[in-house]
Design a protein around this nucleic acid. Sequence first.
DNA 1: ATTAATATCCCCTTTTCAGGGGATTTTTTT
DNA 2: AAAAAAATCCCCTGAAAAGGGGATATTAAT
Lengths: 209, 209
Amino acid sequence: MNIKLFIVDDHYMVVEGIKSLLQHEESIIWSGNAKNAAFCLAELCVQEPDIILMDINLPDKSGIDLCKEVKEKYPSIKIIGLSTFNQKSFINKMLESGASGYMLKNATKEEIIGALQIVEQGGTYLSREAAQLLKYKSEIPVPVLTRREKEVLKLIADGLTNTDIADRLFLSTSTVVTHRKNLLLKIGAHNSAGMVKLAIEQNLLSVDN
Amino acid sequence: MNIKLFIVDDHYMVVEGIKSLLQHEESIIWSGNAKNAAFCLAELCVQEPDIILMDINLPDKSGIDLCKEVKEKYPSIKIIGLSTFNQKSFINKMLESGASGYMLKNATKEEIIGALQIVEQGGTYLSREAAQLLKYKSEIPVPVLTRREKEVLKLIADGLTNTDIADRLFLSTSTVVTHRKNLLLKIGAHNSAGMVKLAIEQNLLSVDN
DNA sequence: ATTAATATCCCCTTTTCAGGGGATTTTTTT
DNA sequence: AAAAAAATCCCCTGAAAAGGGGATATTAAT
């Protein structure tokens, strides 16, 4: 069974590497590649592949959002997330967005081919590392924060006092304190300093880098 | 002038991609590749390349440390850091460790070749993004923390109180408070919550993920 | 040996936060 | 419409942090 493969990744050397690794595989047909989400969507109008290897960090849109969009418009296309990050939150988000797999960029040629075959047959592929990560951390649920809680958390992490935050959000200080308490409970921290770190680790908060 | 090129990266598709992109370049000779620091060092005993493209996140040792080690043992080998991260701290550390350049994995074939030529001629290559980053943020020096400050910072971020930290480190609470004040000053934060986020952004603190 | 940097520790005051309790109103979900 | 969730706001208390000042001892660099 031939698999038409498409790659979305702004890392040319990754695209070229996969092409090269798979060039002698007769069951895999090169469908194309795109360096960002927009080009990918434009290409899919012309020709639908069977499987997309999709980098999760694209320059113009997250792979997670692109995955959702592709699955809505082209439900039969299967998607494998591709990343250097072995983080549960990314893995979960990709799977929840409709991806059929998650592969790290350290995958060997054999692993790539194996993943493609599993996914083409309707299965779900997780790299060894990804599977391991989900196994050990599956008992620690990531808390669900309300919209307001997220706002307050961000401002706490920016170093604002309760009074500052109240002014910023046009609230009473009491309200902010309540949100802060709820955040501490949900995130499982004893104080705000510790909570900021945990929130970042749980991907509840993003950092500039 | 022929350049003997060696690559250190655990991402097979990256290695293969670069090989494939450069296969028709007559001035570039394939010296070899290694998937981690140990294999790299073993290969260098046998044959010295002119330039090493070195991933900064290796499985067994950071590229920064490997860079230092290689420059000490083989001063004539030139090193270009290779990464998906465009972060000032990584760039600075690689350059300080003796690297002659920093390249992102989104580099085109032309950019790779250009980088190799510049570095082979004794210059320093920075990708556009890296150069841009250093330009705009060059006025914000990353603070240098003392050994003790780093210890205290870590424990603050773990959510410990001053008293807890003092007990942990066998110090007076006053001492911990002094370190905490100095950290706030150095990192430019108004309180501990904000400081934790800034410290992570400035790569003064690492997070589990 | 001298100087500079780091580490250690203290005083005081004020501000801020965290813990515990409570409630009503508004919005969303069923 | 009813129930659930979110948002809002308050009371009190004590703990903790932040701001300002100071100092000496130890270690590292010159």
